[in-house]
Simulated scan of single mutants.
Amino acid sequence: MMLPYNPCQCEEHKKSNKILTPLILQCWQRDNFRRPYNHLYLSRRFFEEKLKRKFNLDDYRKIINYFFEILFNNEPKNITIKILRLNGTPITQTVAHLLRNYLIHNEFIEFLDIGNCNLNENNFYIIADGVYNSKSLKAFNMNRLILNNVCDTIDTERIALIISQLIWKNQLIELHLRNLQLNSYDIKSIAEYIEKQNSILLYLDLGSNSLTQDGIEILFKAIVLSNTLIGLDISHNSIGRNGGEIIAFSLPSTKIKYLNISYNGIDAIGMHLLLSVVKKTIPLKILNIFGNEFNSSTVYTLKRQIEAKTLIAENLDVDVVFDRDKNEFYLTPKIVVPEIIGKYLNKYNQLKHNI
């Protein structure tokens, strides 16, 4: 039987006090990354096996600083990274300026992830300028990028205006905007650019914001007019029954294949109406609905949709289960974690190559 890896089990590891230096990192980089920097990867286990001690926060800072040095201090056009994930990495003002310069001058990068990076607004504006002027960027993840603690507030109106300009100028096809405190008023400026006929936005994530039925009405009006979006996540908002009804009436006029409306306070009537409009003729394939209200009529409607194969059971975040004691059907949640980040970027590249 294989035992789990534990760097502290060995006596040699406990006594080791080796310090991580730039020279060590440079040697590792030469050994492991001889090819162009398409994939930069350094696992914690690799580190602990080499230095024979546990990984600590100071080591993390040194690795990050070294990474930024080799990435941004080289000629940007000579680095062919297409996907750059900095999720959870603290970004200072210096790094923000380096990243802006890299985005402007590099012609390869297609996806940037700066979610959960504890940015302040000024640093975000610096990076946003790089995204705006990038010639190649197509997907952008900025989930919870500014909040440092629950007391922080964001100028959401200004953030929304910048996002709308990025959609229009940069022709983004995948955009992640979770947990940015965006409200229904902020959606107006974003929707203004989504509804343009030259929009190529395929996926939009607005989960865990402050959207209500008014924001959903504005958003779906834009989606119907542009008719390009195929993936939408608006989970963990507060759209209620009226928001559910707006989605139900608008959905047949869209190309949406993935829809996440979980935890939105939609009552049983709104859910029944929404499920009733799902027909084989509409593109919808993947649906997340748990966290809303359901009654026996709603559950039975969903059961019929599954039996008719209008909806595929594997593509739902709930299971329909029969309770023999109560002689009725009810819903149970199941864990569905689709790999969304980067998915629509890959789809766009496939479509582009097939043309």
Rank of each mutant, 00 (worst) to 15 (best):
M2C: 12
M2P: 12
H13Q: 08
K14I: 15
I24K: 08
Q26M: 08
Q29I: 06
R30F: 05
D31C: 01
N38W: 14
L42D: 00
L42G: 02
S43Y: 05
F46D: 10
F47N: 06
E48Q: 11
E49H: 12
K50Y: 10
F55N: 01
N56A: 05
L57A: 13
D59L: 07
Y60I: 09
Y60Q: 14
I70E: 02
L71H: 07
F72A: 10
N73V: 01
T80L: 13
I83E: 02
L84G: 07
N87W: 11
N87G: 09
T94R: 00
A96Y: 09
H97Q: 13
L99R: 14
N101D: 15
L103H: 09
I104Q: 08
D113C: 10
D113R: 01
G115F: 10
G115E: 01
C117Q: 02
N118W: 04
N120K: 00
I127V: 01
G130W: 04
Y132E: 05
N133Y: 08
S136I: 07
R144M: 14
I146A: 08
I146Y: 09
N149K: 01
V150S: 06
C151T: 15
T153D: 10
E157W: 03
I159C: 07
Q165K: 02
W168A: 06
K169G: 05
N170H: 07
L172A: 05
L172C: 07
N179S: 15
L180D: 04
N183D: 15
I190K: 06
I194E: 05
E195R: 14
E195F: 00
Q197Y: 03
Y203H: 10
N209G: 06
L211Q: 03
Q213H: 11
D214K: 12
D214L: 07
L219N: 11
V224L: 02
I234N: 03
S235G: 09
S235H: 10
S235N: 10
H236M: 15
I239C: 03
N242Y: 12
N242R: 12
A248Y: 04
F249Q: 15
T254R: 15
K255S: 01
L259T: 00
S262C: 09
D267R: 05
G270H: 04
H272F: 13
L273R: 13
S276K: 11
V277P: 00
V277L: 00
L284F: 06
I286S: 14
F290Q: 09
G291C: 10
N292I: 00
N292T: 02
L302T: 09
R304F: 04
A308E: 15
I312D: 11
N315Q: 13
F322S: 14
F322V: 15
L331R: 09
K343I: 02
N346E: 15
N354S: 11
